[in-house]
Design a protein around this nucleic acid. Structure first.
Lengths: 339, 339
DNA sequence: CTTGGCACTCTCAGCAAGAGAGTGCCAAAT
DNA sequence: ATTTGGCACTCTCTTGCTGAGAGTGCCAAG
């Protein structure tokens, strides 16, 4: 019984590997010859039948080879894929590129997205770290013209927001300096709610303070900003070329950068790498895709995530290994900043 | 002679309109019936033959309808298209959306890209204003940790650059304030070259100054940052669906945000709206596409551009009108800031 | 110069036939 | 009781063909 089950699982694993590799339905003979199994084709066929009746494989039509179902991929990811770890050499290469890049949060997020997309041929989505409650770390005002200044607000997590603000009366930079230093005294460490609660500042400061509140308000309602890379890679996948209609909505979501539609928000809470396969995805349009993602963070309340997205036929092992490594790398970099 | 030429030109115009509209080769009969021409089908046919031998039309095969050649489109754009102007109502709608948006350069550029892409179903590319020589307007330092600060450099055109900088020795924010105010005295209004030429600052300031120089250096070599929107619209065009191979390289360029490959740099100098049609484009991969673009600027040396990109079969009139209007709108907004 | 007429050309959809791949099942072998 | 070889069967995919359709090109008459 055990031996049989082992063999059956082994065949499922091979079917998944072969299908992921070739994108063609895989038959009993192919598997036997390519992987030099001792069992005969007929035996493999009957095992495949069993796997199909258990829901792990499907048949596009009567006499084609087998294709893994979502459940088949799930089982592969859970127990058949085996441990995944990047080679030390590859880790070093990746790490090196981060040290080469400009030391800046957005740069790192972008770099992670680019490298992930390139090495997997999938769409990669990486968000810079973001706090769920926005707190002011620092306020600056830069004079642009007599009656116009650039307001810069640095948030707790070192994100930088900016907005143009009109001035009620002409000012010079030194006046703005003293205004911003007053504002810093009043606002540093405060959240939007706390700023609203305290008695408003007066005069010019009051106007700026309202702008700051508005800026935080808008920012808190804005869609999560993310770096999305690698769309062209996915367009070359045979899935896209054949079932264009199934994927056009996915492209639309990517194009609109609707990160919370692309990445199932519920799974963001989990620690460790989440794998969402096909129909497991809550969004209809995404049910022909799989998502591999994981959050990273250095301190509670400040976090982002790293993820990739592609057709369900994707290299789960490689994807999980890389997503995990990139998130740990970002964790590390975050600790240097926030820790 | 003149009358004949007029009719011929009229037919070219109709062929372009009809083909742009339907994406199907257009025949003599279609044109006659749809536009109620007084001439007979045979006459139209012979005119079409003449247009073809002059290079304005082509034939996909012996007995299909006509398709405009690049030259045909060129002629349409130069003289047949007629004046293009948006309806006052539409202008008002667009303008309104800009006043609703957060007052910020990047926001405006992004909004312009989104609206352009949506209204034309093309890829829209808009760059925020950028100066060709980078000059420091202001420097700020924000303490993140004992030994780490966020360096913010505001450029002349109100762009904001940022970078993390390690500190040689522990500092508090007030020390950073005095450092940054010294740096402002030394650097405001200076370009990278000028900063390099003057004798370097000492101590902590020296380190920061080197970081600033590095930041400017990197920024000056970076690809122009642009907002690119509307890829999914273009993917639905029949051109893409049929000749995928011709367009995959274009998608790759878009994906890599290679703005200077997508938009022919030479034409950026021209004032007015540039239209680059098919083979006129210097980049091989782009020769199945057309580009409609125009620079905007409020002051010499600070400028950006607005452009759209799609298959050669695009609605040149609508595209030119919108690109022109958006650029004039951005011009106006820029004048409020820089003018 | 314009027009109706007509032969000609080329594509495209539909259909049939044959090849190919792979299954499903059965009866024999282990 | 499981495994295996054999074989019929099913379904797709390619190829070739045919007829319909669309549109041209040309010619001779208006």
């Amino acid at each position: 019984m055990e031996a049989v089950t082992d063999r059956r699982a082994g065949i499922l694993r091979l079917v998944v590997r072969e299908y992921v590799d070739t994108a063609m339905p895989v038959g009993s003979k192919t598997i036997r010859e390519k992987y030099e199994l001792s069992a005969s084709a007929a035996t493999i066929r009957s095992e495949m039948q069993a796997l199909e009746s258990d829901g792990f494989l499907t048949h596009p039509y009567t006499s084609a080879g087998r294709i893994p179902s979502d459940l088949g991929y799930r089982s592969y990811v859970e127990s058949l894929m085996g441990p995944v770890e990047l080679a030390a050499e590859e880790k070093a290469t990746i790490r090196h590129q981060f040290y080469q890049a400009a030391p800046e949060l957005d740069e790192w997020a972008k770099l992670a997205a680019v490298l992930l997309a390139r090495s997997l041929g999938l769409v990669a989505i990486v968000t810079p770290p973001r706090s769920d409650d926005l707190r002011v770390r620092r306020v600056e005002l830069v004079l642009l013209k007599d009656l116009l200044a650039l307001l810069i607000v640095v948030l707790r997590e070192a994100r930088v927001l900016k907005q143009l603000v009109p001035l009620a009366s002409p000012a010079d930079q030194s006046q703005l300096n003293s205004t911003s230093s007053h504002l810093n005294e009043r606002l540093v460490g405060k959240s939007l709610r706390e700023i609203r609660r305290q008695s408003p500042a007066e005069g010019i400061e009051g106007g700026i303070e309202r702008s700051i509140a508005q800026l935080l308000e808008v920012e808190s309602q804005r869609e999560i900003g993310a770096y999305i890379e690698g769309l062209s890679g996915v367009l070359e996948q045979p899935e896209f070329q054949q079932n264009r209609d199934d994927f056009i909505d996915v492209i639309r979501l990517i194009d609109a950068r609707s990160v919370d539609q692309l990445m199932p928000p519920a799974t963001l809470g989990n620690s460790g790498v989440s794998v969402v396969i096909g129909q497991e995805h809550p969004i209809r349009a995404m049910q022909h895709c799989s998502v591999v993602m994981t959050p990273y963070s250095a301190r509670s309340g400040i976090s982002g995530f790293v993820g990739v997205l592609g057709p369900t036929r994707l290299e789960y092992g490689r994807a999980v290994a890389r997503v995990r490594y990139f998130s740990s790398l970002l964790d590390e970099l975050m600790i240097e900043i926030y820790g």
